[in-house]
Simulated scan of single mutants.
Amino acid sequence: MSKLFNTAALCLASASPRRRELLASIGVEVEVCPVDIDETPNGGERADAYVTRLARQKASAGAGLSSLPVLGSDTAVVCDGVILGKPGDKQHAAAMLRALSGRTHQVLTAVAVSGPAGMLEVCVTTRVVMRTIAEHEIAAYWVTGEPLDKAGGYAIQGLAAIFIERIEGSHSAVVGLPLFETARLLSRQGVPLWNRACR
Rank of each mutant, 00 (worst) to 15 (best):
S2C: 10
L4S: 15
N6T: 03
T7E: 06
T7D: 10
A8R: 00
A9N: 12
L12H: 03
A13E: 10
S14F: 05
S16K: 05
S16T: 07
P17R: 09
R19H: 05
L22P: 06
I26M: 04
G27L: 04
G27D: 12
V28G: 04
V28F: 01
V28S: 06
E29G: 02
E29Q: 07
V30Y: 04
E31A: 13
C33N: 02
P34Q: 05
V35G: 09
D36W: 07
D36I: 05
D38R: 05
E39Q: 09
T40R: 15
T40G: 12
P41Q: 01
P41S: 01
G44F: 02
G44E: 08
A47Q: 00
A49I: 00
A49S: 08
Y50N: 10
R53S: 00
L54C: 10
L54G: 06
A55H: 07
A55N: 10
Q57W: 06
A59I: 07
S60I: 01
G62Q: 01
A63E: 03
A63H: 02
G64Y: 08
L65C: 09
S67C: 04
S67F: 01
L68M: 05
L68Y: 00
L68N: 03
L68P: 02
S73T: 13
S73D: 07
A76G: 02
V77P: 05
V78R: 10
V78M: 06
C79K: 15
G81R: 00
V82A: 04
I83P: 03
L84Q: 13
G88W: 03
K90A: 14
K90S: 14
K90D: 12
K90E: 15
Q91T: 13
A93Y: 08
A93K: 09
M96H: 13
R98K: 15
A99M: 11
A99Y: 00
S101P: 02
S101Q: 04
R103Y: 02
Q106L: 08
V111F: 14
V111M: 14
A112T: 03
A112V: 04
S114D: 12
G115D: 05
G118R: 09
G118D: 06
M119S: 05
L120H: 12
T126V: 13
V128A: 01
R131K: 15
R131C: 11
T132M: 08
T132I: 03
I133W: 00
A134P: 08
A134K: 13
H136S: 14
H136N: 14
H136G: 06
H136T: 13
I138S: 06
A140I: 05
Y141P: 02
W142Y: 11
T144M: 02
T144P: 06
G145Q: 02
K150M: 12
A151F: 03
G152L: 09
G152S: 11
G152E: 10
G153D: 06
G153L: 04
A155G: 15
I156W: 01
I156S: 02
G158C: 11
A160W: 01
F163H: 04
E165T: 03
R166H: 13
R166I: 04
I167F: 07
S170K: 00
S172L: 12
S172H: 10
A173T: 13
A173N: 15
V174P: 02
V175Y: 04
L179C: 08
L179R: 11
F180A: 15
E181P: 04
L185M: 12
R188A: 15
G190E: 09
W194M: 14
W194T: 09
W194H: 12
N195S: 15
A197Q: 09
